[in-house]
């Protein structure tokens, strides 16, 4: 009987704890908005629009027909870039993880590439792909592919060899081994790679749009700057930031779930 009682109080305790946690997170958000408001009051409307004004402008944008083609352009570039980054990253990463020597040779090179300011390569991309969406896709993919490769490589490298031996004992085909063993075993790390890859791909796409582009959210920001339209500029930035954080949070949630299971 005492056991059931502690189980109940434990559940209550957990619920209270979770409530407090969400309360704290809400407080942090409130804190960010307050700081923003103070900055607005210090700098004035010409430099920083107030949180409320920005939110209203963001609402207008989201309701206007002219906004969505730009959002769609950015989203499309992001999705294509991510797909390319994932395909190449998982492919190359698997090879580097499975083949010890290649992995050992490549790892420092990958790490070095990761910390390069890849923006310097953008003119090259523009020269190769022209000013259209292809350049943005390529630039985004260049940013995203490296973390996906690194995470996949480590996941494959660290696969428990016993799994593979058991696969042989159970007489699984190569296909079955890949889908039943390799994929589930490497999934958590690949999702981590995807999460980091998503952030960097978006960064690449948006930088591409800030620099010589005629469409997309980044372009909207630059155009608003040209027109001295602070509230539009901040509203677009806000929409982009909130969308990015939302997607990243979902990926983080999946990531945590998968990692807890293993």
């Amino acid at each position: 009987m005492a056991g059931t009682q502690t189980a109940y109080s434990r559940k209550d305790h957990e619920r209270a704890e979770r409530l407090r946690y969400f309360g704290d997170v809400a407080l942090v958000i409130v804190g960010i908005v307050v700081v923003w408001q103070i900055l607005h009051m210090l700098a004035g409307d010409v430099a920083i629009s107030s949180p409320l004004a920005t939110a209203i402008r963001a609402g207008e944008l989201l309701g206007s027909a002219s906004f969505w083609p730009h959002a769609a352009e950015t989203a499309k570039a992001l999705v294509y870039a991510l797909i390319i980054a994932l395909l190449i990253g998982i492919g190359v990463g698997t090879w580097l993880g499975a083949h010890k020597l290649s992995g050992a040779v490549a790892e420092p090179i990958l790490v070095a590439l990761y910390s390069l300011p890849k923006i310097t390569l953008y003119p090259l991309i523009l020269l190769v792909f022209g000013l259209g969406i292809e350049a943005k896709i390529a630039f985004g993919a260049i940013h995203g592919v490296i973390p996906v490769t690194i995470f996949t490589m480590n996941a494959v490298k660290n696969i428990n060899r016993v799994f593979l031996r058991s696969a042989r004992v159970m007489k699984l085909t190569a296909m079955q081994t890949a889908t039943r063993i390799l994929l589930p075993a490497t999934m958590p790390e690949i999702v981590s790679g995807l999460r980091v890859g998503f952030s960097l791909t978006l960064l690449g796409v948006v930088i591409g749009e800030l620099f010589s582009s005629h469409r997309g959210m980044g372009f909207l920001v630059m155009r608003a700057i040209g027109l001295h339209d602070v509230s539009t500029m901040m509203a677009v930035t806000l929409i982009l930031a909130v969308a990015a954080v939302a997607i990243s949070s979902i990926l983080l949630y999946i990531d945590n779930r998968l990692h807890r299971r293993v």
Binding site: Y21, I48, L200, L203, V206, L210, V230, T237, S248
Partner: peptide, 25 residues
């Protein structure tokens, strides 16, 4: 604990969009 989710999603925000704003200010 409350800051953790913000720290982990921080790099998802493409920071360079703030740059034009900073130049403006």
């Amino acid at each position: 604990r409350a800051l953790d989710p913000f720290l982990t999603t921080y790099y998802a925000v493409p920071f360079f969009v703030f740059y034009p704003l900073l130049v403006f200010i």
